[in-house]
Design a protein around this nucleic acid. Sequence first.
RNA 1: GCGCCCAUGGCUCAGCUGGAUAGAGCGCCAGACUACGAAUCUGGAUGUCGCAAGUUCGAAUCUUGCUGGGCGCACCA
Length: 555
Amino acid sequence: MKNKIARILSDTIRDCISRGLLPEINLPGGIEVEVPGNPEHGDYASNIAMISAAQVKQNPRKIAAVIEANLVDPGNILEKTQIAGPGFINFYIKNSVWQNTLQIIQEKNEEYGRLDIGGAQKVQVEFVSANPTGPLHIGHARGAVVGDVVANLLKNAGYAVDKEYYINDAGNQMNNLGKSVLYRYRELFGEKIEFPENCYRGDYIKDIAGDIMKKEGNKYLISDEEATIRYFTGVAGGVILEGIKDDLRDFGVFFDNYFSERELYKDDGVAELLDSLQKQGFIYSDGETLWFKTTMYNDEKDRVVVRKNGDPTYFAADIAYHKNKYARGYKMIVDIWGADHHGYMPRLWSGIQALGQDKSSLKIILVQLVNLLRAGEPVAMSTRSGEFVTLREVLDEVGKDAARYNFLMRRSDSHLDFDLEVAKKQSNENPVYYVQYAHARICSILKMAEERGIALPEYKDIDPALLREQEEINLMKMMAKYPEMIEGAARTLEPHRITFYLNELAGIFHSYYNKNKVISENEKLTAARLFLLRTVLIVFRNALNILGVGAPEKM
RNA sequence: GCGCCCAUGGCUCAGCUGGAUAGAGCGCCAGACUACGAAUCUGGAUGUCGCAAGUUCGAAUCUUGCUGGGCGCACCA
């Protein structure tokens, strides 16, 4: 609809210029059309006259008047227009236009809101990517949902999206994992162990050690320690990764690919890449270590890629990883990180630019940490001691839908309070139920109609002009806005816009429901309203589907 | 010390990339079921958009400076 108004304006202006009514106007930014905050200012408004006023040095209201008098509206969608304030042109859309969108929604059904701004371009969204040294905790959960929904949004917008989990399984943290298991294993045979600072203490380590003891006995007490650690690392990493996958599955998060960091080192891949970057002058040696000239691309300082001891850094692997991503044909790459990694951004952007890629092709979404509460009181968490609330515990306690919805209610880069007591409360403090309840309520009404022998109407069976209550018009306008909202969310990679939209839509519906009977003696009105509800249902489902939140028929 | 992010009613947050009188939810107060689901609805109070300049027709939004909070500043990942 916004686009239609913009087209009317651009056609009109071109027409006026060619007829000499307006001077030549340049509009590099295109034509802006927006929804005014105040409904008295119409359904849409444009500031075009004010924008061009400065350029052609004329009174904006005068320009607006010329435009308004010569509007080209072939679709005949305008009820009226007005010029207001310093030079706004306000547009009022005919009710019949909103009523017609019902037909579009019904016809498109689950396609309603689907876009093709992506042009089937290959996009990769990489997220979670926790190294498999322990179960996912609440902090990972937010990133998991944001990544999942961003991927859904892009898919819905017409991109060819793959979701990937990068397994950091090559660093010495994994080695510490193997060591931790070994120490617990020895403890099981009665040895007293001073547990080192950098080892993992969670109970899951003991379980893994216990399993190894049960299956393979005591043979690792005497074998070569380094080999044993390597072996235990593999076993533990595998077990933990499987657990992570299980948790993600129950959270509704699925990946197309799990990519192992170790893959990068095969056939000296990392070394060769560093070599070639050195030849191109991006990397230099100071005699002991290799440095990447990230300052070329506005990083604060150059960064080490190969340490004094000869080991490549995480950064070195990450350049190789992103090179690999581009080599797989992805035109746009979305990385989702914890906000505490923000300092790493200039480094990675330097890396991909050295690879010849455009900085804008790598989008990085920072997800702020979650502040976990229980009934308003902070829940103490410490990774070191192994005391943290796991994703599994959250799922068991509050359920998938409430957890996902709560993580999507704020912008990603804003801190989020997650209160376990509130999230599991089935009350008005918990927005997920507000939306789901609206959906269930509609299902219930449609079912009631069927039980009374009223067939669900099709568009051709109804007179949409009967839908003229204020709440009905509001519902139709809101639904007409759905594709625009989705497009905005997809372009900005901001999933929270959907939850805000859903809350508003549910609000309009609940209010409508309380004021008006859908099923009544008036057959024609009943049919029209039932049809309206069918379309509302479609919008709820499509939006909830993108969020990965259930749309229950009863609660 | 340097860099990034944040600051909007009592609380938690939106604000569509510069628009018109700044909005929701929670909490608080007062009301609405013999009516399609009261997990709902209706009405009410609450604001120097952290402070100060600047940019222009117009600023919560952009610039600069300050204040206060978070996070980074590794040859960790």
